[in-house]
Write a protein that binds this DNA or RNA. Structure first.
Length: 334
DNA sequence: AAACCGATCAACCGCGACAAT
DNA sequence: CATTGTCGCGGTTGATCGGTT
């Protein structure tokens, strides 16, 4: 495919925009609309490339741009959408009126991402960072050196790791020993383990869409909705159930505790059950850390928007709940 | 007062998608 | 069908600012 020579043309100005340049661009677009970005700079009398003009307009000069701090609602939306869409900043921005993809991307990288990391959450997978538990060496040594999982070793770290997780690991190992055809597919594995430990199926928060499906999702985004996606949990992702599905996405504490009833199990058209987070793996129950005090889970249902970063984090921590996504590949830890 | 450092964010860069030729 | 041109996206950079030493 061809690629336009753009900003590498000599003689074109780069760097920060001056108020005069902004005025020229504003004035021209108000009169003629953006039209062809390539020819716009020349017509508007700007020594800039079209790309630079488009960026300046979409990220800064556009009249409908909302400035200022992100609200909790916006932040919550960003996190929820990111858990579904990943780094599709433009798709996320499409659902946040007045916010640009660049602004959201910056905000994610400078605020949300760091906060999630501090809370022990992988900002990519939106899952607890199990690597922090350092169970990989434990598990791998058990697998490699012994046919039996030495639970006494595990007991020694129970102060750090919840018995539920140990039970999960134990079940995994016994499954592997009993069944030489132990599934390599983590999704199959997930369901087997779930049956073993009598817990409900876990809802997937991760999926991989084909480019066409991604495009469809992004297209739907402008209409407010993702479309059909490859993950079974999302196969019936239709406009009519989008909101319902969305509220069952991971929430890191931005939903008012009094509203957690929206996390009740939901049955979709595929009879896939979405379970209340309380019934599944909760991060609180997996690892005991100072930031995951369960005592605050049912605390005040009133949240005061102070705009204080620490309070946001504290609030997040108190409400932290998790599910293990189907895409979680525990084999990486073995 | 100056140097240093980290955070923030506007702007740039490279690439892929897609329409036009 | 191949090539070209344009647009938009996501990742990255670098200037600036405020806080700390």
């Amino acid at each position: 495919m061809g690629r336009a020579p753009c900003c590498d043309k000599s003689g074109l100005k780069k760097g920060p925009w001056t108020p005069e340049e902004d005025d020229k661009l504003n004035h021209y677009i108000q009169l003629h609309g953006p039209g062809n970005w390539r020819t716009l700079p020349k017509n508007a009398g700007l020594q800039r490339c079209g790309k630079s003009c488009r960026l300046r307009w979409t990220n800064y000069l556009r009249p409908d741009i909302k400035r200022g701090r992100f609200s909790f609602e916006e932040e919550e939306t960003i996190i929820q959408l990111h858990s579904v869409l990943g780094n599709k900043w433009s798709a996320i921005a499409a659902r946040l009126p007045g916010r640009t993809d660049n602004e959201i991307k910056n905000y994610w990288n400078t605020h949300i991402r760091k906060r999630l990391l501090r809370m022990g959450i992988d900002p990519v997978t939106h899952s607890p960072r199990l690597d922090l538990l350092d169970i990989s060496s434990l598990l791998s040594s058990s697998v490699c050196s012994s046919s039996q999982l030495n639970l006494s070793n595990l007991l020694g770290i129970q102060t750090l790791v919840n018995p539920e997780l140990l039970r999960l690991a134990s079940t995994l190992l016994s499954l592997k020993q009993e069944n030489p055809h132990f599934p390599q597919n983590p999704q199959i594995w997930n369901s087997q383990v779930q049956n073993q430990i009598n817990t409900p199926p876990l809802q997937s928060n991760q999926f991989h869409a084909t480019p066409t499906q991604e495009a469809a999702a992004m297209q739907a985004n402008t209409e407010g909705l993702p479309s059909n996606l490859t993950n079974p949990s999302y196969q019936n992702f239709t406009p009519s159930n989008f909101d319902e599905s969305l509220v069952s996405l991971p929430n890191y504490g931005f939903i008012n505790p009094s509203e957690t009833s929206t996390f009740q199990s939901v049955e979709n058209q595929n009879n896939d059950l979405y379970y209340n987070n309380n019934q599944g793996f909760s991060f609180d129950s997996v690892i005991s850390t100072p930031i995951s005090s369960p005592t605050q889970l049912n605390s005040s249902s009133t949240f005061i928007n102070t705009g204080n970063e620490d309070e946001r984090e504290s609030y997040c921590s108190s409400m932290l709940k998790f599910e293990i996504p189907e895409s979680f590949n525990i084999s990486e830890f073995m």
